[in-house]
Amino acid sequence: MKKRLPTSTTTLFGNQWEDQKSRPPSAFQMLNQPQAMWFELGLDARPETSLKMQLYENVRNARELRALLMGGQLQCCLIKPQLIVAPLQVAVAANKALSSSRKRTTKGPFTEILFNLSPSTNISQSLVKFGIEDGSDSVLVAALRGPGFEDADEAFARVQGCAVHISQLAGLSDVAAIRKTYKIGDVEHQSVALLDSVVSRIASKE
């Protein structure tokens, strides 16, 4: 059975998202209209690059997407949405992955994002865990837009599935699996918001 997220976790990002006016205008760039299905965020590590995410459900061609990705024909991350609490989680990992001062652990920027999402230091395990499977029917596609990442939109066009609003992510998150992956015990889960626990672990990973 899938557990619903505690409300405090979903609102941590959701609230700020809703009230557009209270947000300071600089530093934060939401490049698209708020009613758009996808989610785009300017990265701090590289100001000219942005992270674009789109959630899909009822995906029919997961196997094909994986094959394309492995063949180097897709420039994106195919993330298992069950392990994602909120878009901020991916944003923090991407920022870390792309910051120029860090030495890369994996071969490409997209594998680096997946690797940074994972608390493990084992590269292949991280990619398997956070990447989609052949039989997945939901997928969170994350691509980069900016110099060096020109064909971002192609990845989104390849997905055969139903694009849903990023806020649906909350319903897809599998709290038990997330807690197991990030080793979040009962004491912590009761008193700290899940997104807080997860993001802090990703940020402090070396």
Binding site: D44, V92, N95, K96, S99, S101, R102, I184, G185, V187, E188, Q190, S191, V192, L195, D196, S197, V199, S200, R201, A203, S204, E206
Partner: peptide, 24 residues
Amino acid sequence: AKALVRCKTVGIATPMLLNVDFHT
């Protein structure tokens, strides 16, 4: 960073960490 995260594991609220950059 370690102490901040460890506090969370014992159930103490601490600020959420968003990035740790040793270079800068």
